[in-house]
Each structure stands twice: as C-alpha cells, then as structure tokens.
Amino acid sequence: MTKRDWVMKSTVAVMLSTSLLMGGQVGYAAASTPKSVDVTEIAKDAKQLVGKAYKFQADGPNAFGSANLATYVYKQAGIKIGSTISALYKTGQKVAQKDLQAGDLVFFASSGKGSLNFMGIYIGNNQFVYSSQGEGGVVLKKFSEYEKKFVGARRVIEDASSDKTSDSSNKSESSSSAIANKVIANGEKYMGTKYKFGSSKNTTKTFDCSSFTQRVFKEAGITLPRDSRQQSTVGKTVSKKDLQKGDLIFMKSSAKNASDRITHVAIYAGDGKILHTYGSPGVTYSKFFGTNWEKRVVKIKRVI
C-alpha cells in the first residue's frame, strides 16, 4: 500500500456506495500496530523523556502537552491513540487502581473528581511519568502521592512480557472468555436489526458495522471508538490461527482490492462464524473460514 492510499480521502459518494455494497465505514487510516508490545519498553520510553519541557499541546520530541506525551510514547511503539485527555480516557479498557500495570494511562483531577486536568503513563513500582504544566516539564512522580487526585486508568495494551503463573493465566483466560461470551450474547439480542449506513451510535433500531461492535462491546464494559478504522487501532494484533471468540476482524472492500483500506468490521463468534451487520440481512451470523469474508481480512485485534 502506498502512502497516498493511506492518506487520501474519498468523496462522500464513493464512500457511501462502497459502504452500502460492502458494509463499510467512514473513518481515519489505521496505524500499524505490532503483533505484541512489551509494556516495559513503553515504561522505559516514557521515563527517558523525563526532563523534557512542558508546552501546551506540543507533541514532541523536545516538549510535550499532557496527553501528547502518551500519544508520542505509544506512537514510538507503533500504536496510534488519541491526542486529547478526553479521547484517551475513552480508549482501551478500564483498569482498577489495584490492577495498574506498566504502560497504563492514568488520569487525574485537581479535586479527585469532575473534569480531568492532567494524565500520565504508569511505569510500575508506584511511579508514573507526566508532563507537568506547573513544573514546566516531564516529571517522574510517586503514584501514591497523587492517589487523592486519581480519577481512573485505561489499558491500551496487555503486558506481553510479564511472566504470569499458569494459575493466574487461567484466571485471566477465564475472565476474557466470560466477557467474550457476554459480547456475543449482547449481539444476539439484536439479531435481524436493520443495517443503516452511518447509523447513530445512540440508537439500537439500526446499526452499521462499527456502531454495532461499539454497542455490544460497550454493553460488556469495553469502550471502542466509533468507526471501523479507528477501532482497528486499539487492542492487540493477533493472527488468524490464534482467533478467539470476541476478536474483532477488520476487512477491506474486496479480496481483489490491492488497497488494505478497512471498510468492514465483524466479531469472531467461535465455531468458524462471525457476528456482524451488513446489507439486507442486518445483524446476522456468517460463515467465516473458506469464504469471501476470510479473503478480505486486513487485520485482527483483541480488545478483551
């Protein structure tokens, strides 16, 4: 794919035509996300920026705004995330304070509630890095000293490097499986609901492919961006052979199309099936392996 393919914007007419035919969505080009990311590298990269200057909305490499620091660090790892505090507070998965791990995004408010004022990257060992307006630069702080101001945390990636015991791994897999089952059950409630291109995220009377995935994951406690291309930038990239129930499958408009521009998203439902919405059937199950759907795959992401 050429750079021009990534950045060019189609006309509304072309997008509408393609989407109606292929179940596509309107959005931004997806960033290239590595198959696995070592969260210790995220923490290391963040810590190396300590001492850099603070500047409102500066995106590096020598000065950073509050949210821009996180945007920059994740970009170095090949992951595209938002560039504002409000956007980042909706990305990835919600994480409890007791479950914080290196690489998690942590958010704060002056009074510990209400509007968010600043954010940083948790790097482990009770420490986080953030770009401080008050101190005029990127600083390293003890998280415990900011607990009263802590509002919440989000996890963009899972720790691919941590050495978990088989017991904890089994518990994690069990939890993930339960969430995946909930996502599928949420989707089944809407079987047969009509497809409508550009359907509002606030309605369940109609869906397009990405408003459907956004809705059923939201009902399972996971926040996704609005459109398919934005959704393809979050979570962990997995291979087709490692497909699990609940994985998001992103597709291009045609198996013969040389461009990998994402136009459709579906949820892998297990047993070789996908749960999605398109065209006349609306929300439906479709066979995946050995079909045109499989041939159109661009990437697969795991957000559970």
Rank of each mutant, 00 (worst) to 15 (best):
G152C: 11
R155H: 06
R155S: 11
V156R: 07
V156F: 11
D159S: 13
S162W: 11
S162K: 14
D163S: 14
D163Q: 15
T165P: 10
D167G: 10
S168M: 11
S169P: 00
N170F: 05
N170H: 09
S172V: 11
S172P: 05
S172E: 15
E173K: 15
S175C: 04
S175N: 14
S176F: 12
S177Q: 11
A185G: 07
N186C: 03
E188R: 06
E188F: 03
Y190L: 03
Y190C: 03
G192A: 04
T193K: 08
T193D: 04
Y195L: 04
Y195D: 04
Y195R: 03
K196E: 15
S199K: 07
S199P: 06
N202E: 09
T203A: 09
T203L: 09
T203H: 10
T204L: 11
F207M: 12
D208G: 05
C209W: 00
C209F: 00
S210W: 00
S210H: 00
S210E: 02
S211A: 12
F212D: 07
T213Q: 11
R215E: 12
R215S: 10
V216C: 03
F217Y: 15
F217Q: 11
F217K: 10
K218R: 14
K218S: 15
E219A: 14
E219Y: 00
E219F: 00
I222K: 03
T223D: 12
L224Y: 00
L224R: 04
P225V: 01
P225D: 03
R226H: 08
S228P: 06
R229C: 08
R229N: 14
Q230C: 05
Q230P: 05
Q231E: 10
S232W: 00
V234R: 08
V234C: 10
V234A: 12
V234Y: 04
K236S: 06
T237F: 08
V238P: 06
V238K: 12
K240F: 09
K241A: 15
K241C: 07
D242T: 12
L243C: 09
L243H: 14
L243R: 13
Q244N: 10
Q244A: 08
Q244C: 04
L248Q: 14
I249A: 05
I249T: 05
I249P: 00
I249Y: 09
M251W: 00
M251E: 03
K252Y: 09
S253A: 05
S253F: 01
S253M: 07
S254A: 06
K256V: 01
N257Y: 05
N257F: 04
N257H: 04
A258K: 15
S259P: 02
S259A: 14
D260E: 06
I262V: 10
V265R: 03
A266P: 01
A269K: 01
D271G: 11
